[in-house]
Amino acid sequence: MTDLSHGAAWMAGHIGPVSDAAIPVTDWGVTHSDIAYDVVPVWQGAFFRLDDYVARFMASVRALRMDIDRDAEDVKTALADMVAASGLRDAYVAMVAARGRNPVPGSRDPRDCANHFYAWCVPYVHIVKPDAAARGTSVWIAKHIRRIPSDSIDPTVKNYHWGDFTGGLFEAKDNGFETVLLLDHEGHVTEGPGFNAFAVFGDRIVTPDHGVLHGITRRTVLEMAAETGLQVEARPLPLAEFLEADEVFLSSSGGGVIPVARVDDRTFSNGAAGPVANDLRARYFDWIARPEHRTPIAY
Rank of each mutant, 00 (worst) to 15 (best):
V212K: 04
D246C: 11
G168M: 07
P236V: 10
G256A: 07
E186T: 11
G254Y: 15
V263C: 13
E244R: 13
D174A: 14
G176P: 06
W162C: 03
L243G: 02
W162H: 02
A234G: 13
T179N: 09
V212F: 08
F242P: 12
H214N: 06
T220Q: 14
L250I: 11
A199R: 10
T166I: 13
T156N: 07
T220R: 10
F170Y: 07
F195W: 12
H214F: 10
L213W: 12
L243K: 13
P208A: 08
I258F: 07
L243I: 08
H188D: 13
G187S: 13
E227S: 15
A225L: 11
D184A: 04
F242C: 09
G254A: 15
R204K: 15
K173W: 07
E247L: 01
P193R: 03
F170G: 02
T220V: 13
E247S: 06
S252G: 01
V232P: 05
I258V: 04
M224A: 15
W162S: 13
E233K: 13
E244A: 12
I216G: 09
N159T: 08
G229C: 05
E178S: 04
V248R: 05
H210E: 15
K173I: 11
V263D: 03
G163R: 15
G254D: 15
T179M: 03
R219P: 10
L183V: 01
D184W: 10
S251I: 07
L250V: 03
R218K: 14
S251N: 08
G163K: 15
V212A: 02
G229T: 11
L183C: 05
A245N: 13
S251W: 08
G187C: 07
T220A: 14
E227R: 12
E171P: 01
G192P: 02
R219I: 13
H185R: 08
T156H: 12
A225S: 10
I216A: 05
E227D: 14
V180F: 04
G202D: 10
R235A: 12
I205K: 05
A197Y: 06
V248D: 09
V157H: 03
E233W: 12
L222G: 10
A261H: 12
L243C: 12
N196D: 09
P259Y: 01
T207C: 02
A197L: 03
A234V: 15
M224E: 14
A197W: 06
T207H: 03
T179H: 02
P208I: 07
E171A: 00
F195Y: 09
N159F: 07
F170I: 10
G211Q: 01
N196A: 10
A225E: 10
L169I: 04
